[in-house]
Design a binder for these strands. Structure first.
Lengths: 336, 336
DNA sequence: GAGCCCAGCGAAATCGATTAAGTAGCAGCG
DNA sequence: CGCTGCTACTTAATCGATTTCGCTGGGCTC
C-alpha cells in the first residue's frame, strides 16, 4: 500500500508537506505541490479513507436505514428507487453509503449505536414505524438525520404529498361520476392516516358519503390481504363502484379477486392504486394511480442531509414536500 | 465520545488491559475483566470501527458492486433480492456493506480503487458486463471477490443454473405439445449465451427445429423492447405457438402486444418468462416461469466471501450453483 | 545593518484502537 | 537462597493521515 510516507521519501519532503500539497493547502509552493502530485500519481497513491476518518472525525459515509421489520424493505420498488437515488446523489457529493441495522454479528446494538460505531456523518431514515424507540433515539441524537415520510422535531424530512395525492385521486374519480368510493388502507402508519384523512375530507368536500363499511384494512404490498378486503367489499349489499387500493401491488390482489367474480375492470368495477411504480404502467389495463416522486425524494434527502453535515452552523430543520403526479390509466370508467 | 482511555482511567488500568479485556484476551484476570466490562457498559462505551480498522487492516466491511451502467440496477427485483440477502447474511456474520461505484464526488476512481479507498475486506460483484476492464481489474486484484452469474479464474462465484433452468422450461413446454418455440433474448451477456445455448440444445435433443426467425433480440427488463420483438414474431408467416421471454418483466410488454392483436393467453399464444419474481405469481394469468434462487444466491455469496476473508489460507476458488425451480402458471396451453 | 515580515517547510501531537515486548510479583523447586 | 516460570499488567510502537505551531532564510524597510 502506498502511503504519504512513501511519497514523502520519494520527494524528499515531510509527510506534512505531502498531505498539505494533496489537499491544496496554501503554504506549499507551486513547484513542490506539482512534484508531489506527480509522484503520487506515479506511485499509484490512494488516500486511506479510514485513517482520514479517524483523524478528521468525518467519514464521508452516510448511513441508510430501512427498518427491516417487514423483512424485505429494499425489495419494494418504492424503497429501492429511494435507495438508488440516495446512492446516486450521495456519490455525486463524495459520500459513500452504508446500511444501518440492528445487531451486527454477535454484538447487539441499536440503530444509533450502529451509526456511531461506523462513524456515519449522517443517516437517512425510511421506516414503517417511526414510533420505534430505537428510531426515535437515533433521530433525537447528535447525528444529523433526514427522515422520509415522517417528521420529527428538529429533524429535516422529505415528505411525499399524501394529502394532495389522495385528494387528486378522489377528485378525478368523482369527476368521472363515481359516488360510491371504497377505500382499502394499509397498516395504520402516519402516512396511512394522512391518506385516509385526505380521502375522507375530500369526499366530504365533494358531498360524497363514506359508509363505514367502505373502509377496509389490509396490509401494504400484500396482494393476498387486499384480495380479501376486495372480497369483503364485493359481499356488501350495496357495492361501491370504485375501489381505492393502498398501493399498486395490492391492486393485483384485487384484480384477481374481481376476475374470480367475473367483474371486468373498469366496466364492472373501477379501481385506483397508489405509488405509480413502473409496473403499474405496463399492466393491462393501465392503472390509474398517483406517482410519488420517489427518485426526487431520495435525491432531496441526500442533498439535505449532506448540507446539514457540511454546514451545521447555518442549518435549520427543513421539511420538503415532493409533489407527485396523477397517472391516468384506464381503470376508472366514466359513468358521468 | 467514550474511548478505551476513559475506561482505563476509570478503572485505574492501562489502555492495553482494557482492549484486551474487551476482546477476551487470556492474560487478564477474571476480576479485572469483569470490572472493565462493567465500567464500559456503564459509560456507554462503543468501539470505534474506524480506529480498529486502521490498526488491524480489517474493516469488517464488504463492498457490493452493482454495475450502474444500466442506471438502475438496484430497482430490479432480482438485484434487490440479492442485495437484501447479501445484506442479511453479512450482518449476521458481523459485516457491514457499502456500495462500490466508479467516481466518488470529484475524485474519479475505478472500482478497485474505490474498494481499496474504503478498505473493504472483500467485494460481491454483480454486473451485466464482466468484460468491463474496471471489473476485471477488481476481480484480478488481491481483494477477495465473489462474482454472481459469471466465473473468473481464481475467483469464487455463485451461479444460477441457467442451463438447467432453460432446459426445464423447454421440456415443460414441449411436453404440453408445443413445437414452434420462439425465443426473445436480452443483451448478449454470458448469462444470455448460456440460456440461449441451453434452449437450442434442448430443442435439438427433443427434435424441435428452431428457425432463425424465431430468435429475437431485446433488452432485459424492458417491456417496450420485448413488445417490439413480440410484434415482429406475430408478423411472421408461420407464427410460433409459444414465446420465451427474457424475463418476467419483459413478459408484460409482450402481454400488451398480444392483447392489441386480440390474442388471449394461453388460448391463442403460450408464453413463459424467467426469474420467477413475486409479481409473476400474482398476475392473471399466473406466469409459467423459472425462479432463480436469488435470495440463496445472495446468502451464499456473502457466506463464501466472508469465509475467504477469514480463512485465506485454506481457501480455494469455488463455484456454487444455486438451483431454481419451475413455477407452473397458466400461460402455457396444452395442445398435446 | 538591525529588525520585521512572510513564504515555505518540518517536527510532533493526535485520532482510538491493537499488540509485541517487557516487567513486576509471587510460587515452586533444588 | 537463587533461579525458573507463571500470571497479570504496563510500555510503547504502530496503523495513515491531518494540523498546529515553530523554524528558517530571504527580502524589505527605515
Amino acid at each position: 500500500m502506498v502511503t504519504i510516507t512513501d511519497i514523502s521519501k520519494a520527494c524528499g519532503v515531510s509527510r506534512a508537506t505531502v498531505s498539505k500539497a494533496l489537499n491544496g493547502a496554501p503554504d506549499v509552493s507551486q513547484e513542490t505541490a506539482a512534484r508531489i502530485r506527480k509522484t503520487a500519481a506515479a506511485l499509484g497513491y490512494l488516500p486511506n479513507a479510514t485513517a482520514r476518518a479517524l483523524k478528521m472525525g468525518r467519514s464521508y459515509n452516510i448511513g441508510v436505514l430501512f427498518s427491516d421489520e417487514t423483512g424485505g424493505g429494499i425489495s419494494h420498488e418504492y424503497f429501492s428507487q429511494i435507495l438508488e437515488s440516495v446512492k446516486a446523489e450521495s456519490e455525486r457529493l463524495g459520500y459513500d453509503i452504508t446500511f444501518i441495522s440492528k445487531d451486527l454479528g454477535r454484538m447487539s446494538m441499536d440503530y444509533y449505536e450502529h451509526a456511531k460505531y461506523r462513524s456515519c456523518d449522517g443517516v437517512v431514515i425510511a421506516s414503517a414505524d417511526f414510533q420505534d424507540p430505537a428510531i426515535m433515539r437515533l433521530a433525537a441524537s447528535e447525528i444529523p438525520t433526514v427522515t422520509l415520510d415522517y417528521s420529527f422535531d428538529n429533524c429535516s424530512s422529505i415528505l411525499s404529498d399524501n394529502v394532495r395525492g389522495m385528494e387528486a385521486l378522489v377528485r378525478f374519480v368523482r369527476a368521472k361520476g363515481h359516488r360510491k368510493l371504497a377505500f382499502i388502507h394499509g397498516e395504520m402508519t402516519s402516512v396511512t392516516q394522512k391518506r385516509l384523512a385526505s380521502f375522507r375530507r375530500t369526499c366530504a368536500e365533494l358531498g360524497v358519503p363514506v359508509p363505514a363499511d367502505y373502509i377496509r384494512p389490509a396490509v401494504y404490498h400484500d396482494p393476498r390481504s387486499s384480495g380479501l378486503a376486495t372480497r369483503a367489499l364485493l359481499a356488501l349489499p350495496d357495492r361501491p363502484t370504485c375501489i381505492f387500493f393502498p398501493d399498486d401491488l395490492s391492486f393485483l390482489g384485487g384484480m384477481s379477486e374481481l376476475e374470480k367474480h367475473g367483474l371486468a375492470i373498469p366496466k364492472d368495477m373501477s379501481v385506483v392504486g397508489y405509488d405509480g411504480i413502473p409496473l403499474s404502467q405496463v399492466l393491462r389495463p393501465r392503472l390509474t394511480t398517483y406517482r410519488q416522486g420517489a427518485e426526487r425524494m431520495g435525491t432531496e434527502a441526500a442533498r439535505l442531509l449532506i448540507e446539514q453535515i457540511e454546514r451545521p452552523d447555518t442549518w435549520l430543520p427543513q421539511q420538503i414536500t415532493v409533489e407527485g403526479e396523477l397517472l391516468e390509466g384506464s381503470t376508472v370508467s366514466d359513468i358521468g
